[in-house]
């Protein structure tokens, strides 16, 4: 799958379409709200498949791992979910954004 980087290989929505066509189970995560300094703007996407492979970004790498884990859940249940990430000390079990911002991420299955 190693191809040269082009507009298409960096486009999560195109990747979501291509992966689905290739028979992979795909979830799409989208930044829907941000407060304070957030690393990626509203509308940014992360696309995830059932193996936990992903492309795109919803942060600077701080919360992608947690989003991928939630996305696997979404693929199991087939139901969309809303995630919220804030500063690290806000709730102990949550993954934090080191930049101090807060983001909401919508995760949905592509089917």
């Amino acid at each position: 799958m190693a191809e040269t980087v082009s507009r298409d290989t960096l486009d999560p929505l195109k990747i979501a379409e291509d992966w689905t066509k290739a028979g992979r189970k795909v979830a799409l995560a989208t930044v829907v709200e941000t407060w304070g300094s957030a690393p990626r703007p509203v509308g940014s996407h992360l696309v995830i498949d059932q193996e936990g492979d992903f492309e795109g970004s919803v942060s600077g790498g701080c919360v992608e791992g947690a989003v991928v884990a939630e996305a696997l859940e979404v693929l199991e249940t087939g139901k969309p979910t809303m995630l919220e990430f804030g500063v690290a000390d806000e709730t102990a079990w949550r993954v934090g954004l080191s930049c101090g911002g807060r983001i909401r991420v919508f995760v949905e299955p592509v089917a």
Binding site: L13, A16, E17, T20, E108, P109, V110
Partner: peptide
């Protein structure tokens, strides 16, 4: 996201046409 909607959205984008997906 409905796969058909995703394809339609990508089709608009590939042809330099604007579209809004409402969720």
């Amino acid at each position: 996201m409905d796969f058909k909607l995703l394809q339609e959205l990508n089709e608009e984008r590939a042809n330099r046409r604007a579209a809004i997906l409402i969720t």
